[in-house]
Design a protein around this nucleic acid. Structure first.
Lengths: 255, 255
DNA sequence: AGCGAAACTTGATGAAGGTCAAGGCCGAGC
DNA sequence: GCTCGGCCTTGACCTTCATCAAGTTTCGCT
């Protein structure tokens, strides 16, 4: 039982940005073939899509906003297993049957498509481009889970936080003259649950990083990183993160 | 840098048992269609199949013996990400491009099939049973990775060790009059690298579990658990493990 | 049988991070 | 503009586990 209630976060500033910043989905056109087969879900902030462990194998496609894949272990220990951005997929059979399994939206204006897995994988379309894309995306999600396990298991608190910031910068950041700006879609509590730390500890670590100039606030819920290379140096898996995410940032900066 | 060199372990007793105990592979017949397309690899104990991050997407099928999927983080921090038993699959694209990624056999007499992914997924056979099986198996591996991340992130040392023992009991154990016997294919160091603990700590925890009667040695490399329910009670994810692994043990005991 | 190396055990000590507690900041709504 | 509640910060203290060190046990080999 958490001693303090920490459950909400403002999103006013985030709304507009996320639209423009995250509107472009990789492989947009291929996924769009699924739209007629899918149930489109509009989400509000903190809205939870519960996932029962006995439900049919189902595919979720994140279209807009961030979604958190979460589950809990016995005794109120909630964990965030994955942070999903637009274009990411979530297959229920690829997650363990833990209590409290759910997808939670961090934004108002989020959009998720839900498709029954058999329909998506062998539906009427029988489209080999779609099949390959799904297979590749699911493999990528698995790779991220494995990396996350390695990060949580093998890195110190500071390194974990640096990894999270570096990953978000690479996945969703925008390079500008001043550095890289990205949205931090989740609260300290969420970060703690994702990195298997404690919210107080996360706060301390972030404060230290701020003091060292590694990151700076750029409006509520947004981070500015003036020197992404310095941030990457704090993070032992930087090379791996770069390899996994199209390194548009780095090249954009160099160009 | 580990202060002590700890790199070998005897397998004399293990050899014979693993043949009989693990000879039966789930979905044997469907996978066998891949044999003509695969490179069959016979392994020796501690043999390492290195996996370069730039290699083509490749599928490995474990046929006999245990294999450990490992990778390292910067600075000699090796981690075991997954323990594979016969019937399990490993797709390189579903693992992050970390340095030192490899599959290591724990047994002499291991056997692994290697197939290029495009061949396996859309090869000449174009077999929908095989396709579905592969897809399901890969999802299962991903689910195990996610569960492992949750265990490492959310449980105490004792709970993690209990979870590992419980999982191995469910996955590979044999019920008998005295309880459940299963092979412990990995050393203290390996356990530590899998659970993100320290080998000394693992030793202490196992000693404590032995003292409490939760487990007992049953010959080198084999464990006897007289009361599997008691072991499961130590482990907060027991219900999840049961759901993920055909609970033949429990039913066999009850029957 | 005996040696050497790997593997395991166990104690002493310290550091990283969790827990508890108190307060500060800021946006939403009146 | 004020107040309420969610969220964040920071300090003091304590637990868990890593590290270091010194054994003991097991097994392969001659």
């Amino acid at each position: 039982m958490g001693p303090h209630a920490r459950t909400r976060r403002t999103a006013a500033a985030a709304k507009e940005h996320s639209g423009s910043q995250l509107g472009l989905i990789r492989n947009q056109s291929i996924f769009e073939k699924l739209e007629p087969l899918a149930v489109v879900i509009r989400t509000r902030r903190r809205q939870k899509l519960a996932i029962a462990s006995d439900q049919e194998d189902t595919l979720y496609l994140v279209r807009r906003g961030f979604m958190l894949a979460q589950a809990s272990l016995a005794g109120n220990r909630t964990q965030i297993l994955s942070i999903l951005t637009p274009g990411d997929v979530y297959r229920t059979a690829a997650m363990p049957p833990l209590a409290g399994t759910a997808l939670t939206s961090t934004n108002d204006q989020g959009e998720v498509w839900r498709v029954r897995w058999p329909v998506a994988s062998e539906g009427p379309s029988r489209d080999s481009a779609l099949e390959n894309l799904l297979s590749r995306q699911l493999a990528e999600q698995a790779a991220r889970l494995a990396l996350h396990a390695a990060i949580v298991g093998g890195l110190t608190g500071e390194e974990r936080v640096a990894s999270l910031y570096a990953e978000l910068a690479l996945r969703t950041g925008k390079a500008s003259h001043a550095g890289v700006t990205f949205e931090m879609p989740i609260s300290r509590v969420d970060i703690a649950e994702y990195l298997s730390l404690n919210a107080d500890t996360v706060s301390r670590i972030v404060s230290r990083m701020r003091a060292r100039g590694l990151i700076a606030e750029a409006g509520r819920g947004f981070i500015l990183c003036r020197d992404i290379e310095a941030l990457m140096r704090e993070c032992p898996v930087a090379r791996t993160l770069e390899a996994m995410h199209p390194a548009k940032l780095i090249t954009a900066q160099v160009a």
